[in-house]
Each structure stands twice: as structure tokens, then as C-alpha cells.
């Protein structure tokens, strides 16, 4: 299947990615190629097959619902990575 420029722009917007004109064209062609290759999966009969997301058979690994405080020093180091902070919290531009 061939992806048009408007499709690529739409996907890039969903993915929150700025792409240059050059990238839009290049990725359009490359993604179309890859999707063409992947389409061979349609020839496999999977009518009564369940999907696999987990391979080891683990189900519902539970743990106690308790607060496990992050060591203060590590927390401060993590906060120091943010471009803007206030009162030990990450500051962001207004959302609404």
C-alpha cells in the first residue's frame, strides 16, 4: 500500500514528530516499502489463533500495594534532568 504525503503528515502529528519536507517524502516511500513487505502476513490463516503478547505464561503478577519511597538523592537527580522545575515538581506549559 502506498502512503501519501497527507497520510505521513497525519501519522507524524499523531506521533508528535516534526518532520522536514525531505523526511516526509523519504519516510513515505520507505514506510510504503516496509508495509508492502509486511503484507505477506495476510497469506497466513489465523482464523482460530489467539494472539500472543506474553511468552512465559505469567498471569497477573501481583505485589503489595504499598508506597516504596524513592531515595531522596535519586529523586533529586531525576528532577535535575527536567528543563524546568518548581517546588520539587516538573513544570510544564499550560495544558488547557
Amino acid at each position: 500500500m502506498k502512503l501519501e504525503k497527507k497520510d505521513i503528515e497525519h501519522i507524524a502529528r499523531l506521533a508528535r514528530l516534526d518532520l522536514s519536507e525531505q523526511e516526509l517524502k523519504e519516510y513515505g516511500d520507505q514506510l510504503s516499502d516496509v508495509l508492502g513487505y509486511i503484507n505477506q502476513l495476510q497469506e497466513v490463516n489465523t482464523d482460530s489463533v489467539e494472539p500472543t503478547a506474553q511468552v512465559t505464561g505469567l498471569e497477573n503478577s501481583l505485589r503489595e500495594d504499598t508506597v516504596d519511597n524513592w531515595p531522596e538523592a535519586e529523586r533529586e537527580e531525576a528532577l535535575a534532568e527536567a528543563p524546568e522545575t518548581e517546588d520539587h515538581q516538573v513544570k510544564v506549559k499550560r495544558v488547557l
Partner: peptide
């Protein structure tokens, strides 16, 4: 981009779900 497309509305069944079934 490829993943966003494969998981987007209308394509999930054809790509992601299909792939997870062949994975089985």
C-alpha cells in the same frame, strides 16, 4: 511512524493483531 500507523484506528486488526496471531 510505522508503529503509530500500525496501532492507529482502522489498522490495528490488520497489522498488530494479525502479527500477534502469527507470533503464536
Amino acid at each position: 511512524m510505522l508503529g503509530t500507523y500500525a496501532l492507529s484506528a482502522g489498522y490495528y486488526d490488520a497489522y498488530y493483531l494479525k502479527a500477534q496471531k502469527v507470533r503464536t
